[in-house]
Amino acid sequence: MRSLVLVLALISFSSHAFATSAEEVKQKTAEAASAAAEYSKEQKEEFQKDMETKLGSMKKEIAEMKAEASKKTGEAKAEMNDQIKALEKKQEEMKKDLAKMKKSSGKAWGEMKAGMSKAWDAISDSYGKAKAHLSEEK
């Protein structure tokens, strides 16, 4: 009888310990999920600020290119203006994508980040080529 009481006491104790552990696991899981969401939000905000800064810099650089193009004449001027218009179009698309990304959440923002990074690489490359072309013609 004593051993039966002892076994019942152990079972009771272990199930109580398990219940506490399960509750702790739920709490820790919820805390981890919350921390991950907060980290993702911080990454998103940091990426947005970085893109806004880059787009602001690009706007200034395009303005400088316009000033340089205005000094050109003929075909060189027309070509530079075409390149500037193409850059401005890409820049506007990036602004629209950034506005969409600000409204996105979770997995969607991660996918948009990848797309915007590729688009930024493309616009940076286009700007570099246009700038180099402008320098060649000086």
Rank of each mutant, 00 (worst) to 15 (best):
3 S>W: 15
4 L>W: 09
4 L>F: 09
5 V>G: 07
8 L>Q: 05
11 I>F: 12
12 S>D: 09
13 F>C: 14
14 S>V: 14
16 H>T: 15
17 A>D: 11
19 A>H: 14
20 T>L: 13
20 T>S: 10
20 T>G: 04
22 A>W: 13
24 E>L: 12
25 V>C: 03
28 K>C: 01
29 T>P: 01
30 A>K: 11
30 A>C: 06
30 A>D: 12
31 E>T: 07
32 A>W: 03
32 A>F: 07
33 A>G: 01
34 S>Q: 13
34 S>G: 12
36 A>I: 10
37 A>L: 12
39 Y>L: 14
40 S>F: 10
41 K>G: 11
43 Q>W: 01
45 E>R: 12
46 E>P: 00
47 F>C: 02
47 F>G: 03
48 Q>Y: 06
48 Q>P: 01
52 E>I: 08
52 E>T: 11
53 T>H: 09
54 K>L: 05
55 L>A: 05
56 G>M: 05
56 G>N: 10
57 S>V: 06
58 M>I: 03
59 K>W: 05
61 E>V: 02
62 I>H: 02
64 E>F: 06
67 A>R: 11
67 A>E: 14
68 E>A: 15
70 S>R: 12
73 T>R: 10
78 A>Q: 14
79 E>I: 07
80 M>F: 10
80 M>V: 04
81 N>T: 13
84 I>Y: 00
86 A>C: 02
87 L>N: 02
89 K>P: 02
90 K>L: 11
90 K>R: 12
92 E>R: 02
93 E>S: 07
94 M>E: 04
95 K>W: 00
97 D>R: 07
98 L>I: 05
98 L>K: 03
99 A>Q: 07
100 K>V: 00
100 K>R: 06
101 M>I: 06
102 K>A: 11
102 K>L: 03
103 K>V: 01
104 S>P: 07
107 K>W: 03
109 W>M: 12
110 G>L: 06
111 E>L: 07
111 E>F: 01
114 A>Y: 04
118 K>M: 07
119 A>R: 00
119 A>W: 01
120 W>Q: 14
121 D>V: 05
122 A>C: 01
124 S>N: 15
125 D>E: 11
127 Y>N: 04
127 Y>L: 05
128 G>M: 03
129 K>I: 09
129 K>W: 05
129 K>C: 04
130 A>R: 03
130 A>N: 06
130 A>T: 08
130 A>W: 05
132 A>K: 15
133 H>M: 14
136 E>V: 11
